[in-house]
Amino acid sequence: MVRSQRERVSENLNRALHAMLEKDPRVWMIGEDVSDPYGGAFKITKGLSGRFPDQVVSTPISEAGIVGLAGGLALSGERPIVEIMFGDFVALAFDPILNLLSKSVGMYGRRVPMRTVVRCPVGGNRGYGPTHSQSPQKHLIGIPHLNLYELSPFHDCSALFGRMLAAGEPAVLFENKILYTERMYADSTVDDLFSYDFPASSDGCARVFLGSPDAADVVVIAPGGLTGRVLDAARRLFLEHEIVCLILVPVQLYPFDASSLPPAIAGAGRIVVVEEGTAGGGWGAEVAACLYPRLWGRLRAPIRLVTSADRVIPAARHLEDEVLVQADTVYDAVLEVAGA
């Protein structure tokens, strides 16, 4: 199957940042080493400082300080976008995220718009080791007024950033590093087997289906960073066992809007939720908690959570492979659930 050359996710993201800074002079890009010629550790901020010198601030290594600084800007009506070089370091900025950005929206009696996006490159499978490979999404779940999003190869970043900055509530955008070099999907086509659409709206969850979106044996819910691995698994499951997976990729992780999910989710009665974070108190548990009351009585098997192992992420690639969720992990889980 011949495809025209589609945009890489990193290019789409970079283009979105250019568009945001161009459209609104109140939008800032703040972070460590974000200026040209370096353009950020993952080159996502490339070209911004040259075009918008007054809106791009390359900072010292001070995660707590720069997120606090962003809070001061947001309180002043500005719209800062902060890059945390590695999402693992968002731990250093936990106080300003928990006690300042999100609190300010609601704790002063009147709604205070806090238009801030904290960008966190996350995830492993690149051999970066225990403190540069984590998926800390779960640590930020359940904070009032804090919205969590995840980069996806289906959702256009310009629309996503427009939405995050317009919300008036701070957002954390998790960007699975593995996605940066992947290509965006376009024209409703994933590959020779799978198609996709947006059943609710283009900023709702992407629905990846085989044949008909209304018929599936198993529904797999996974954030954008897992798309490739889940698709690999779904492909094999179909070709080898004719198990049809419907894959739902929400762009907003939290609050998780279960009501926006397509009805097929109830029809399948078998649900697998996948995340790259380690086991225990994760996003999948939150999704399952939202789904159980809605689907109780219609489920044919317990909702199956797929996570990375409850272990430190090793640096050696072969060891890292064993700890993190891979296509095989998803394949095995779906096979098990399908047979239940």
Partner: peptide, 22 residues
């Protein structure tokens, strides 16, 4: 604006100062 976490308001004030300067 006041907040209840020690020291937290200094980076915030720096952010506000950055906006004012601009």
């Amino acid at each position: 604006l006041s907040t209840g976490v020690q020291g937290q308001n200094v980076p915030v004030a720096a952010g506000a100062a950055l906006a004012l300067k601009r």
